[in-house]
Amino acid sequence: MKGMTLIVKTITRLLLGFIFVFSVSIILFGHITPGGGFAGGVMLACVFILLVLAFGKKTALDIVSEKAISIWDSVGSLSFLEIALLGFFGGFFFKDFFSKGSPLKLFSGGTILWSNISIGIKVFASLFAAFMALAIFRVRRER
Protein backbone atom coordinates (compact mmCIF):
# COMPACT_ATOMS: atom_id res chain seq x y z
CA MET A 1 0.00 0.00 0.00
CA LYS A 2 1.58 3.22 -1.17
CA GLY A 3 -0.79 5.70 0.43
CA MET A 4 -2.99 8.29 -1.16
CA THR A 5 -2.39 11.29 -3.41
CA LEU A 6 -0.27 14.37 -2.70
CA ILE A 7 -3.27 16.49 -1.65
CA VAL A 8 -4.33 14.04 1.05
CA LYS A 9 -0.77 13.71 2.30
CA THR A 10 -0.29 17.47 2.58
CA ILE A 11 -3.58 18.06 4.39
CA THR A 12 -2.86 15.16 6.73
CA ARG A 13 0.57 16.56 7.53
CA LEU A 14 -1.02 19.90 8.40
CA LEU A 15 -3.89 18.53 10.49
CA LEU A 16 -2.28 15.65 12.35
CA GLY A 17 -0.60 17.71 15.08
CA PHE A 18 -3.77 19.62 15.85
CA ILE A 19 -5.86 16.46 16.20
CA PHE A 20 -3.18 14.92 18.42
CA VAL A 21 -3.05 17.94 20.74
CA PHE A 22 -6.85 18.09 20.87
CA SER A 23 -7.15 14.44 21.84
CA VAL A 24 -4.52 14.80 24.57
CA SER A 25 -6.36 17.84 25.89
CA ILE A 26 -9.65 15.90 25.95
CA ILE A 27 -7.97 13.16 27.98
CA LEU A 28 -6.31 15.54 30.44
CA PHE A 29 -9.32 17.78 31.07
CA GLY A 30 -11.82 14.95 31.28
CA HIS A 31 -12.78 15.73 34.87
CA ILE A 32 -13.54 19.42 34.23
CA THR A 33 -15.04 19.51 30.74
CA PRO A 34 -16.93 16.91 28.69
CA GLY A 35 -14.72 14.13 27.44
CA GLY A 36 -12.47 11.75 29.29
CA GLY A 37 -10.38 8.70 28.71
CA PHE A 38 -12.75 6.88 26.38
CA ALA A 39 -13.36 9.73 23.93
CA GLY A 40 -9.73 10.86 23.98
CA GLY A 41 -8.43 7.33 23.53
CA VAL A 42 -10.60 6.65 20.50
CA MET A 43 -9.60 10.03 19.05
CA LEU A 44 -5.92 9.24 19.60
CA ALA A 45 -6.42 5.97 17.76
CA CYS A 46 -8.05 7.95 14.93
CA VAL A 47 -4.87 10.06 14.62
CA PHE A 48 -2.75 7.01 13.85
CA ILE A 49 -5.44 5.47 11.66
CA LEU A 50 -5.41 8.67 9.59
CA LEU A 51 -1.65 8.26 9.33
CA VAL A 52 -2.09 4.69 8.09
CA LEU A 53 -4.76 5.65 5.57
CA ALA A 54 -2.81 8.58 4.15
CA PHE A 55 0.78 7.34 4.12
CA GLY A 56 0.45 3.57 3.99
CA LYS A 57 1.06 1.14 6.79
CA LYS A 58 4.84 1.05 6.50
CA THR A 59 5.23 4.67 7.64
CA ALA A 60 2.87 4.17 10.57
CA LEU A 61 4.59 0.97 11.68
CA ASP A 62 7.90 2.85 11.70
CA ILE A 63 6.44 5.34 14.18
CA VAL A 64 4.52 2.87 16.36
CA SER A 65 5.69 -0.71 15.88
CA GLU A 66 3.73 -3.83 16.78
CA LYS A 67 5.87 -4.37 19.87
CA ALA A 68 5.21 -0.81 21.01
CA ILE A 69 1.45 -1.27 20.58
CA SER A 70 1.39 -4.37 22.79
CA ILE A 71 3.57 -2.62 25.39
CA TRP A 72 1.26 0.42 25.47
CA ASP A 73 -1.77 -1.86 25.80
CA SER A 74 -0.27 -3.64 28.79
CA VAL A 75 0.89 -0.36 30.34
CA GLY A 76 -2.62 1.12 30.13
CA SER A 77 -4.47 -1.75 31.75
CA LEU A 78 -1.77 -2.45 34.35
CA SER A 79 -1.55 1.18 35.43
CA PHE A 80 -5.32 1.33 35.93
CA LEU A 81 -5.14 -1.83 38.03
CA GLU A 82 -2.18 -0.31 39.88
CA ILE A 83 -4.23 2.77 40.79
CA ALA A 84 -6.93 0.46 42.10
CA LEU A 85 -4.45 -1.64 44.10
CA LEU A 86 -2.67 1.38 45.58
CA GLY A 87 -5.94 2.16 47.34
CA PHE A 88 -5.14 -0.67 49.75
CA PHE A 89 -2.65 1.65 51.45
CA GLY A 90 -5.58 3.82 52.44
CA GLY A 91 -7.84 0.97 53.42
CA PHE A 92 -9.76 -0.58 50.50
CA PHE A 93 -9.76 -1.28 46.78
CA PHE A 94 -10.16 1.85 44.65
CA LYS A 95 -9.71 4.19 47.60
CA ASP A 96 -8.97 7.73 46.45
CA PHE A 97 -5.55 8.17 48.01
CA PHE A 98 -4.43 11.32 46.20
CA SER A 99 -4.88 14.82 47.59
CA LYS A 100 -8.11 16.29 46.26
CA GLY A 101 -6.72 19.69 45.34
CA SER A 102 -8.81 22.76 44.67
CA PRO A 103 -11.84 22.20 42.43
CA LEU A 104 -12.00 23.30 38.78
CA LYS A 105 -8.20 23.12 38.43
CA LEU A 106 -6.26 20.54 36.40
CA PHE A 107 -4.75 18.79 39.43
CA SER A 108 -7.95 18.12 41.31
CA GLY A 109 -10.20 15.19 41.86
CA GLY A 110 -7.64 12.79 43.30
CA THR A 111 -7.01 9.72 41.17
CA ILE A 112 -9.50 10.64 38.45
CA LEU A 113 -6.87 12.39 36.31
CA TRP A 114 -4.48 9.44 36.43
CA SER A 115 -7.27 6.94 35.80
CA ASN A 116 -8.32 8.98 32.77
CA ILE A 117 -4.77 8.90 31.38
CA SER A 118 -4.42 5.13 31.82
CA ILE A 119 -7.85 4.44 30.29
CA GLY A 120 -6.98 6.65 27.34
CA ILE A 121 -3.73 4.78 26.69
CA LYS A 122 -5.54 1.46 26.99
CA VAL A 123 -8.35 2.29 24.57
CA PHE A 124 -5.92 3.82 22.06
CA ALA A 125 -3.63 0.80 22.05
CA SER A 126 -6.46 -1.74 21.80
CA LEU A 127 -8.29 -0.09 18.92
CA PHE A 128 -5.14 0.70 16.99
CA ALA A 129 -3.97 -2.91 17.37
CA ALA A 130 -7.31 -4.14 16.02
CA PHE A 131 -7.13 -1.73 13.09
CA MET A 132 -3.58 -2.73 12.22
CA ALA A 133 -4.57 -6.39 12.31
CA LEU A 134 -7.43 -5.63 9.92
CA ALA A 135 -5.15 -3.61 7.64
CA ILE A 136 -2.38 -6.20 7.48
CA PHE A 137 -4.78 -9.12 6.98
CA ARG A 138 -5.11 -10.22 3.36
CA VAL A 139 -7.88 -12.48 2.16
CA ARG A 140 -6.36 -15.60 0.64
CA ARG A 141 -8.78 -17.80 -1.23
CA GLU A 142 -8.02 -21.43 -0.55
CA ARG A 143 -8.96 -23.14 -3.77
Binding site: G30, T33, P103, I112, N116
Partner: peptide, 11 residues
Protein backbone atom coordinates in the same frame (compact mmCIF):
# COMPACT_ATOMS: atom_id res chain seq x y z
CA UNK B 1 -13.87 17.54 43.67
CA UNK B 2 -14.40 16.72 39.99
CA UNK B 3 -16.58 19.19 38.11
CA UNK B 4 -17.82 16.64 35.57
CA UNK B 5 -20.26 14.47 37.50
CA UNK B 6 -20.28 11.78 34.80
CA UNK B 7 -16.54 11.29 35.09
CA UNK B 8 -16.81 11.35 38.87
CA UNK B 9 -19.34 8.50 38.76
CA UNK B 10 -17.34 6.63 36.12
CA UNK B 11 -13.96 6.69 37.85
Amino acid sequence: HAANIVTAILL
